[in-house]
Simulated scan of single mutants.
Amino acid sequence: MIRRLLAALMGLMPAMTPLPLAAQGLAQLVADSVTVTAQEVLVARGNVEAFYDGTRLSASAITYDRAADRLSVTGPILITTPEGEVFTAEAAEIDPRLEAGLLRGARLVLDRQLQVSAARIDRTGTGLTALTRTAATSCRVCGTEAPLWEIRAARVVHDEIGQQLYFDDATFRVAGVPVFWLPRMRLPDPTLERASGLLVPQLFSSDALGFGLKLPYFIRLGGRRDLTVTPWIATGARNLELRYRQAFRSGWTQIETHLAEDDGAVSPRYALFAEGAFALPRDIRLEFDLEAVSDEAFLLDYDLSDQDRLDSSLRAYRLR
């Protein structure tokens, strides 16, 4: 979308009209002032906004040098696309033929969920975006304070077509403290609904388990089945959570298990939850709910539920 917007803006340049204008239905450029120098350089300054096919670009100034065949954008720059991508940058230099583009001091926000800040962003025009010296997080960033968690990498490549993020020389940090390092890693794009990969890590703390981290990994087993494996790593316990889901033509089922080992407690501890519903012939509906734990305190210790008793059931009914 950004490439199409810039391509449409190029249609404005040959006309060299020194007024805000619409590019014959292709694009709109609005600014406080638009001037053309004797060297055939078009300069739009002050509250510059460009619109094209749902994509919006805002900047302090846009300059097109016909002799150098170069488009320069002065920040602060904000680019939003209908697909949910948001780019911010301090400055940008873009080839009008769109063979290459460079954004400096930039940030990429994907689907309002994951933000990746970088020293520079290079758009290749082939569906790949390369980000150098990056920090990625889904947490809110306030000033210079380190986010709750982030992934720092020497380089990140965003595959827009494959909806994947590839990290090189990545370090996972919690509150600014490095936890582990990976030479390479891959994360699904937040816009991708179902793909195998690491999900957003979660931090937790409790009196029973101490301070810990959850690292969920989603495994796609097909169009109707999936498995989420979530290790819990805490100062006072270890827990492996497995969640299996499957959809059938006439119903669905979900099975969740926990296998835990606590410091100072009788091991192993476990929990099992299974539920599902099926539509049977003659308008009969079958539902089941199974709950089992190794001990009474397991649900509270792992903050799974605050109920004081287990409730398993099997029900078949028909409504007319």
Rank of each mutant, 00 (worst) to 15 (best):
S72V: 15
G127S: 07
C142K: 12
I79S: 03
A237N: 00
P147G: 09
R309Y: 14
A91F: 08
G11Q: 14
P190L: 15
D263K: 14
P183L: 09
D301Q: 13
I284C: 05
S206V: 00
L304F: 14
Q202K: 12
D168T: 13
A100P: 00
I94E: 02
T74K: 10
W181H: 10
G105E: 06
D95H: 10
A15G: 03
E40R: 15
P82H: 10
R155G: 12
I255R: 01
L272I: 13
R66N: 04
E85W: 10
L300C: 01
A59M: 02
L314C: 02
S33A: 11
A44G: 11
R97V: 07
S117L: 07
A119T: 15
T80C: 03
R245Q: 09
Y244E: 06
H258L: 05
G25F: 09
Y64G: 02
D53M: 07
A50N: 06
V177L: 11
E83M: 01
D69N: 10
A195F: 09
T171E: 00
D301N: 14
Q163Y: 00
T63C: 01
R152F: 03
D301F: 05
R269W: 01
P190G: 09
R107M: 14
F298R: 11
A316R: 02
E83Y: 02
L199D: 13
A130L: 06
E261V: 08
R140I: 09
R123F: 15
R194K: 11
A234C: 04
G276L: 08
L221N: 07
A175N: 07
I284W: 15
I77C: 03
L286I: 13
E287G: 03
V36F: 07
R315H: 09
S138P: 00
F87H: 04
P201V: 07
L114T: 10
M16E: 07
A22Q: 09
L98E: 08
A31L: 06
F87D: 02
H158M: 06
D159I: 02
V116S: 07
I94G: 01
Y64I: 03
M16Y: 04
L29A: 12
V109G: 11
M185W: 14
L128I: 06
S250M: 03
S312Q: 02
M1S: 15
V174C: 08
L71Q: 03
T37L: 04
A119C: 05
L203V: 12
Q28R: 15
V156A: 04
L12C: 12
L29Q: 09
D303Y: 08
R220H: 04
R243G: 03
M1Q: 13
E160Q: 12
G127I: 10
L272M: 11
D122V: 15
I62M: 11
S58W: 03
A175H: 05
D189W: 01
A208Q: 14
Q202A: 11
I77A: 00
Y302G: 05
T228H: 09
L12Q: 05
I233F: 14
L187D: 00
L221R: 08
D311Q: 07
M1A: 13
E150V: 05
S294N: 07
V266A: 06
G222Q: 04
C142G: 02
V30T: 11
A237G: 09
A27V: 15
A23D: 12
G251H: 04
R315M: 05
